[in-house]
Write a protein that binds this DNA or RNA. Structure first.
Lengths: 174, 174
DNA sequence: TTATTATATGATATTGTTTATAAATAGGAT
DNA sequence: ATCCTATTTATAAACAATATCATATAATAA
């Protein structure tokens, strides 16, 4: 498998503290405070960076370390982090909004591989759309700010157990 | 503007009847009937092919020609047409599922240009992802069945009135 | 310190979209 | 005509997400 599909994985210790501090700084810049609830939420997001958590997912995980937190606060915090472009909202068509950290330096979003069999979401960290974006900007006079590219198919883990892949496309929202 | 951004537009008369008949045939093949309600729904979809209607949109339009229809029936019909791959479900992150006809011969979905200023959805009829797909299949051992590619930015109609495009990305779901 | 103000939170109600249910209806087949 | 299945309608329910509002917390001023 190509190396750039590898996930960063949950980093404990120093790296984590560093990133929490950085986010605290970003909030501070916009006159927001890193309250205990917000910090707990941020830490859950950092600890599960390789997943694409829904608000409900985050809520349940935060409750483990801060049982008194309310669902509305989690929603509010996610919205705030999203407003500040610290995280991204994603929609994979399964009815819930999912969240992921925004890549530090990356101008654009990376790409996703969604398995129609097991539902796994893998990532292509690189941005392969450069040439296509230039073509879009020129041919359609469209100023691109961001993009989303998602491939739907069968992942390497499922390929042996799926006989007729075409059948899977069905009525999925995409 | 490139020619392939042009829409087919609502075709009245012969072409419309032909397509209704074709859909009737597709339903029939799977032992479904083209009931009056289903036909009214199909005709609304055909008449507004250039738009990306939500279920509610379709419901209101169908009601104009068949006031007795129920919302649930519209949902069921859209789901049925989607199951049979006659139409596609789309999600542009605005909270509602939208529907569009599936291109006749096209193996894959076309691409969308979404304006962050006015919300317009334009289309790139061509599929420009061939080379990238082959790379994905090879590098990630991922069998691609379909894809979605959406560009978010400023359309040619809005470019003069938007000064700071980056500000628009904010917390949009994508 | 205490009072004052602004900000953030938690519990809950509400909204909006979509799906599920149950009774009524329509069309064919026998 | 009767039966049978598919379909529809109206309504309730499920679900995610947002709004409301009283309370709590933190920052500021006196």
């Amino acid at each position: 498998m190509a190396s750039h599909i590898m996930k960063k994985g949950a980093q404990g210790g120093v790296a984590m503290e560093e990133r929490v501090k950085q986010i605290k700084q970003q909030l501070s810049t916009h006159n927001y405070k890193l309250t205990p609830q917000r910090e707990a939420t941020v830490r859950v997001l950092l600890e599960n960076e390789e997943d694409h958590l829904s608000a409900e997912d985050v809520y349940l995980l935060v409750k483990e370390k801060a049982p008194e937190i309310g669902l509305a606060t989690v929603y509010r915090t996610l919205e705030l982090l999203s407003d500040l472009s610290i995280i991204h909202k994603l929609n994979f068509g399964d009815g819930v909004t999912r969240y992921e950290f925004r890549a530090e330096g990356a101008e654009h979003h990376h790409h996703h591989l969604i398995c129609l069999n097991c539902g796994a979401v893998d990532e292509i960290i690189d941005d392969w759309l450069g040439p296509i974006e230039r073509r879009v900007e020129k041919e359609f006079d469209f100023r691109i700010i961001d993009h989303r590219l998602t491939f739907h198919g069968i992942c390497h883990r499922c390929k042996d157990q799926v006989k007729d892949p075409e059948k899977l496309i069905g009525s999925k929202v995409t």
